[in-house]
Design a binder for these strands. Sequence first.
DNA 1: CGCGAGCTTGACGTTGTTCAACTAGAGTGG
DNA 2: CCACTCTAGTTGAACAACGTCAAGCTCGCG
Lengths: 230, 230
Amino acid sequence: MAQRIKTISCRDCTQRDICFRYLSRAQLMKADEQRLEVIYRPGEILCKQGTFASHIIYVRKGLVKVYIEGRGKNLILAVVSGGNLIGLTSLFGDAIFHYSAMAYDHCEVCLIDMQVFKKFILENASFGSAVIKNLNENTVRSYERIFSMSKKKIPGRFADLLIYFSENIFRSPSFALPFSRKELSDLASMSVESLSRIIRTFNDDDIISVKGRKVHIKNMELLRKVSDNG
Amino acid sequence: MAQRIKTISCRDCTQRDICFRYLSRAQLMKADEQRLEVIYRPGEILCKQGTFASHIIYVRKGLVKVYIEGRGKNLILAVVSGGNLIGLTSLFGDAIFHYSAMAYDHCEVCLIDMQVFKKFILENASFGSAVIKNLNENTVRSYERIFSMSKKKIPGRFADLLIYFSENIFRSPSFALPFSRKELSDLASMSVESLSRIIRTFNDDDIISVKGRKVHIKNMELLRKVSDNG
DNA sequence: CGCGAGCTTGACGTTGTTCAACTAGAGTGG
DNA sequence: CCACTCTAGTTGAACAACGTCAAGCTCGCG
């Protein structure tokens, strides 16, 4: 699982986009020095809810499911793609992971020690504000999620999910989902059967075309209208 | 609405508990100097979604509804009580309020200029980390909310709401809600009629006793069980 | 005393879940 | 190469949960 080989240095990392670009040269070197580069295969656990959060996980490549495990029922909080951080919510409170994370596909991540990460924030206010910005973006997304979940019916929720995939994860009207119908139905908070039915309906209405796990959005305007109407 | 009278100075404020205690003496003086002390009456708007977020709102006293306005349907994000901040999500992204806030009852708040607040974060890393901690607590609460909304049925959702009030807002098994059935039903994401019915059921099962807006939790154990079972 | 807003109650319709049967495709062993 | 099995996915029907509609109730206030 873990490989103690470093393919590239932080200095040359093209993914250094969120907050890391605010690090000083010295800090970046420090990050590079202590970080662990790890590759996960599909289905492997990146972090487990309830364990000690000793590090921040930087997802460089791949797709990760972040989810809460609650008595029998799991809630998928987010699908995280390359260029994002996992574990920020454990930063200054109890240093416990509040969720689990699992690789959907081949994932390349960097593990950064929590204490070092904290130190960066305390030393470097620009870095800190970038972290806050990142947290806030996630919060706003959570709010949209709560809205979608609590106010919208199945068509609206599924439309929201498709739009989210298309705009935030795959950045294309066509994409191949790396997960099963069960996962998809969990994400949209519905039963697998209801998912099947809504896919068929959207298909019949020429909003999307679905073949297995491949999705193509044919009519984004209409999809947005469905999302708006709930 | 706004009164340019300062009743006390920040230095003597007993509510100075979240992040403000990390401010240096000079910073606290600066905060005191530029802040506005405002009193809101029930129903008055503290901030309006979509407007420029020129300040952070510190709720010193009272109860505030934070909500998102979306095409016809409003979503209540949180009920905020004394000692909390509103507007943090607008800190380092677009400086626009992502939600509206309304006073439920008599509220005393302080308005702190956004630029000054940002400056505190950049100057004072302890203050910044306290802000991050506060953000994270809100995020974790949002996650619990998403779970409740998307995985639980009406009894579970109502139980969650009662537990939240009892533990986080009123800190007592007995409390007088400052809002109508309509507001309550919005909070628990159900119709007013369903709310009426679930109140009656809980009453009949001796879990709670409700008279008008006064609530008394008679059997917390059972309430928790209902929450757990969804 | 009567009006009206907020709340409750019952009847009914809609939405979505559950259950069960069926289908398609992938892997296995003869 | 074909039968067999297994799993993921689809489909239909019954059922439960919940919202909507309409009527009735309660209580504060003019």
